[in-house]
């Protein structure tokens, strides 16, 4: 009987939590589907009386969201692929070789995770300008490596440590060199980890506001997050359009996460739970 009561309470808590978690998303969508006039009605209407997708259409036609979306995608994908590839190589090195100074280097990489972005933005602004990379996508990818590469290395090390060394030996016997062991044995076996790492790097790059606000200035380099952050600071805000923009900005993260969530949650928690 007591167990039943516990289940009822837990189910109630779960319902409340779901409402808390999901309501803002629902409200974004409801607002985005309203006319501006209706969005500004007091009190708010719970459901759009004349649902319209105008806000979304405006984003893609009159405003430049197609371009912003492309910028965000190119930058985030490049960052994700680059940082997880370099991170995986390093993780393999740390995991499989008795490097002198190896633990010092791992500590160094862990510490770099703690450096705040604002410590670096000033020099970036100057150096990228000097290199002609200010206001370019390449410049942003370089900057995002500072956020993504350290944790990608750490995350991948956790996964590669989990691949039994006996398999390395077996592959070696079969004639694989070190690179072959890495690409044919270790990497395929830590694929869930690689997926999780790549997705995490993508989410970090996609969600950034600090670097895109400091390292770009022209309209052709604007990303989705920068676009919506700029809009909300304007004196006059069209809320249905802004909510449509916010949904567009959140959608790729949501879609990728939902598609890969099994590996992602597994990968995210593996390091924390291990040991």
């Amino acid at each position: 009987m007591r167990l039943r009561l516990g289940t009822v309470l837990a189910t109630g808590a779960l319902v409340l939590l779901s409402v808390y978690v999901l309501f803002p998303f629902g409200w974004m969508l409801v607002t985005a589907l309203k006319t501006e006039q209706e969005a500004l009605r007091i009190p708010s209407t719970w459901w759009p009386h004349q649902p319209t997708v105008d806000a979304f259409v405006v984003m893609w036609t009159r405003k430049n969201y197609g371009l912003y979306f492309l910028n965000s995608t190119v930058i985030s994908l490049s960052t994700a692929v680059l940082s997880s590839a370099v991170g995986a190589l390093a993780a393999y090195g740390f995991s499989r070789f008795p490097l002198r100074g190896g633990s010092f280097l791992m500590g160094f990489i862990l510490t770099t995770q703690m450096l705040p972005g604002v410590l670096l933005v000033g020099p970036y602004f100057r150096v990228l300008t000097a290199l002609g990379l200010y206001d370019t996508r390449t410049g942003l990818v370089i900057a995002f490596l500072t956020i993504c590469l350290p944790f990608a290395t750490w995350m991948m090390k956790g996964f590669i440590d989990g691949v039994p060394r006996e398999l390395d030996e077996a592959a070696r016997v079969d004639g694989c060199g070190w690179l072959g062991i890495f690409t044919r044995v270790v990497l395929p076996l830590s694929l869930p980890g690689l997926v999780a790492t790549t997705l995490f790097a993508f989410l970090l790059a996609w969600g950034d506001l600090l670097w895109v606000s400091t390292l770009t200035h022209s309209e052709s380099m604007v990303t989705v997050t920068l676009a919506i952050a700029r809009t909300v600071q304007e004196f006059y805000v069209n809320w249905p359009e802004l909510m449509a923009g916010a949904l567009i900005g959140g959608l790729p993260s949501i879609a990728l996460y939902l598609a890969l969530q099994r590996w992602f949650v597994q990968g995210l928690t593996a390091g924390a739970v291990k040991g």
Binding site: V232, W239, L242, M243
Partner: peptide
Amino acid sequence: VVPDVVAGIVWKW
């Protein structure tokens, strides 16, 4: 999972 900018904006609304 969504950008923190999105979280800030929806709560602002």
